[in-house]
Amino acid sequence: MFILKRQDVEISNIQHPRKEQQIPILQYQGQTFRLISVFSAAQEEDAKAFWRDLTDNRGKACVLLEEPERYSVWGKVRLEQLLDGSDGGADAGQAEAAPVLVQACLVLLQALYLDIEDLLGGRQVSNFQKEMMAVFQQGKFPKAITAPEVQQLLSADPLRILPPPWQEAHLNLLLRELHRLGMQYFGNTSFTDRVLDALEDLSEKERTQFFAWLKRSPGGKFWQ
């Protein structure tokens, strides 16, 4: 929608109607936006890619705010929705994870899937696919509920498809469940190094970003 500078907008906080927390809101030309995701100054390309994905591919009304120390993406909401407790509707929601984080987690998912197929055979990989579908359904992962959707996530090149709109909570759950299933199928942690080696498909910058996030995320402790 727009790339804005700090001097173009007004940013303030309002009290969440049901929680003890403040909601950051941005106002521009009479329109109200709620914070979706924040990127560091070094993540300019990631921020712009995330913003374009939301606006061009998912049809969301969003602005990208460019500041000296960071970039942030904001989704359009109606102020009355925030104040009456509806949390701003579908355009706001919880912050979606940066696309590179989702792609990296999909790389790990596919690497474990192929590892099971190569070492344990078709029957076990079929069981793994069913268990992953249960994980996605129970965790309410967007774009990962039906059998065709799950099959695409297991087979399509994760660096070429549009990453599903998952939140970091989804990624942490996925990392935890991948480790649990790996232990279940292999009986030890021997699979972790093989699976992590698949991240070589990412650029050095992307790997650095993912591993930095992995170190601070709850799901990452299983892969350290």
Results as ranks from 00 to 15, higher is better:
192 T>V: 15
166 W>L: 06
110 Q>T: 08
58 R>L: 14
77 V>F: 04
97 A>L: 13
102 V>L: 08
127 N>E: 15
191 F>N: 00
217 S>D: 06
49 A>K: 08
151 Q>S: 14
145 I>Q: 12
70 R>F: 04
199 L>K: 09
19 K>T: 00
192 T>S: 10
172 N>S: 10
95 A>S: 13
203 S>F: 01
92 A>V: 05
186 F>C: 02
44 E>M: 05
138 Q>M: 07
194 R>P: 03
87 D>R: 02
152 Q>C: 10
83 L>A: 10
86 S>P: 03
208 T>D: 15
180 R>N: 07
2 F>K: 14
48 K>I: 08
136 F>M: 03
179 H>P: 10
74 W>S: 03
81 Q>G: 08
124 Q>P: 08
95 A>W: 08
85 G>H: 07
15 Q>N: 15
89 G>F: 03
90 A>D: 13
77 V>T: 10
57 N>K: 12
203 S>P: 04
46 D>M: 15
121 G>H: 06
154 L>P: 13
139 G>V: 00
202 L>S: 05
70 R>L: 09
65 L>T: 02
163 P>F: 11
199 L>S: 10
57 N>I: 02
132 M>S: 05
19 K>P: 07
125 V>M: 03
153 L>Q: 05
11 I>Y: 00
208 T>Q: 13
143 K>T: 07
25 I>A: 01
157 D>W: 06
187 G>F: 04
62 C>G: 08
123 R>I: 14
99 P>F: 11
21 Q>R: 14
224 Q>I: 06
69 E>N: 14
162 L>E: 15
64 L>A: 04
154 L>I: 02
75 G>Y: 03
46 D>P: 02
130 K>G: 07
91 D>S: 11
204 E>W: 01
45 E>F: 09
122 G>F: 08
150 V>T: 07
60 K>L: 10
210 F>K: 10
7 Q>Y: 11
178 L>H: 02
126 S>G: 14
136 F>W: 02
149 E>S: 07
33 F>M: 01
198 A>H: 05
136 F>K: 02
37 S>K: 10
97 A>N: 09
173 L>T: 13
75 G>W: 03
26 L>G: 05
